[in-house]
Amino acid sequence: MRFVSIFLLFFTSSVLADASLYERGKAYYYGQGVEQDYEKSFNAFKHSAKIGSIEAKTALAMMYIEGKGVAQDDDKGLELLNYSVDRNHDKAQYYLGILYYRGIGIEEDLAKAFELFKRSANQGYADAQYNLSLMYQQGDVIKKNTLLAHKWLLDSAESGNSDGQYHLAVAYQDSGHYKDAFTLYLKAAKQDHADAQYKLGWLYEYGKGITKDYVSAVNWYIKAHQLGHVGVSYRLGLLYEVGLGVKPDYETAYHYYQMSIEEGNLDAYNKLGYLYEHGKGVGKSTQKSYEHYIHAAREGHQASQLKVALMYEKGIGTKRSIKNAKFWLKKLRKKGNKMAGFKLKRLQKR
């Protein structure tokens, strides 16, 4: 089960001169307007907790559990967290639920995790609502219930959980409701949800639910890439190669295709084969071109198989071999490739 991260504790906030101790603690924790300093963050939370801030007690609890700004101490952290839970604090209920679910500093207990998520979710805490949706969807502890899973997914999205917004958007997209999908992807993307940023880029690129806008597509793809999205490198390579939303730049396209092959993308191998073949963005090398095409071909990439057959026929980048050319064309013909059948027929006349 994929849960919202346990350590994204607080909403970010700018620092003002008259900021409360709790706000000051958040500022030092995140380095918002001041240099990040966990010890100063801990001390600010500690003083805030002394004057009654339940938010600060919850924050202190998690800092003890994380060992940030103070020596790591699960017992002390759990003591403070339970104090907040007993006073019906929604964040504390959620965090303690995570600890029970993962068995962090405490014996794993999925039933207790479920009850804590439910208490927190009923108070409108978005992350708890999303995790409750997952538990109903997957049948963890409780009986699988798709209706309740969907209900809590809707609630989590409405409450601002980016994962909930993303998955609901996917459902809208899959059913052809692109405008609704766009609205939710945008909300999640603005919270740095990499998958949502990628999807948003795709909608802009293809004009689904929004006017086609290649510049916006590139911008959202780059944001997703900066957050480590797997798969977006290939889209960026294509747009830079063709010059959509950006000026054509083969070197940058080559750079993104290189990253894409590290993710195992066979289309990227094919693209690099083309760039090496024609010397675009990289020094021309028919041998390296062949090496990239043959790699993709052996993994079942049909366009590369057709290209390899031609290279064997002509002796480009590799030793000429009509036998090997026929081998690849026969494989393609079996898959129903008409072009391969035509080329094979021509070769067999020789």
Rank of each mutant, 00 (worst) to 15 (best):
D37I: 05
R235E: 12
M311W: 02
A189K: 06
A181S: 13
S133E: 00
Y312P: 00
K68Y: 02
S175M: 08
F42C: 11
V232P: 01
R320C: 04
Y94P: 07
K91E: 07
I98G: 00
Y269G: 03
G245Y: 10
G245S: 08
A49P: 01
L227V: 01
S14K: 15
A113N: 09
Q165W: 05
Q129C: 03
Q197G: 00
S48M: 05
R119F: 00
A171G: 08
Q173I: 00
K118Y: 03
F10M: 12
K26H: 08
E277P: 01
Y204K: 11
I106S: 07
Q129M: 04
L21E: 10
V246C: 10
K223D: 09
N161Q: 11
N131F: 00
E55G: 08
G237L: 11
D155A: 15
Q287Y: 05
K307I: 10
Y185D: 05
D73S: 13
L96W: 03
Y234K: 10
Q36E: 09
K199D: 12
R24E: 10
I65W: 11
S175L: 13
L134V: 14
L78N: 11
K46N: 13
A56T: 09
M135N: 02
Y214F: 15
G33W: 14
A303F: 02
L148P: 01
K334H: 08
A59S: 15
K330Y: 00
G52Q: 09
K331N: 04
Y29M: 02
L266V: 09
K314W: 01
K68H: 14
Y269D: 12
M135Q: 07
S285A: 12
A17L: 13
L78A: 03
S216T: 06
S233P: 03
A17W: 07
G139P: 05
E313L: 07
A340F: 11
G33S: 05
K76W: 06
E66I: 06
Q197P: 02
K190T: 06
Y185W: 10
Y276H: 14
E262G: 05
K151G: 01
N161W: 04
Q165E: 15
N161A: 07
Q305I: 07
Y178W: 08
E107Q: 13
Y185P: 00
H150Q: 15
L306C: 04
L227G: 01
D174E: 13
E66T: 08
R119Y: 10
D180K: 15
G77H: 12
L186D: 07
A92C: 11
A217G: 02
K280R: 14
L148D: 08
A309W: 07
E313I: 05
G139H: 03
I65S: 13
E108V: 12
K331Q: 14
E35N: 12
Y28F: 15
T183F: 07
Y83F: 14
D90C: 05
A128M: 09
Q93P: 08
N265S: 09
H177A: 08
D249L: 08
N122Q: 13
K334E: 12
Y94R: 04
L16H: 12
E39C: 01
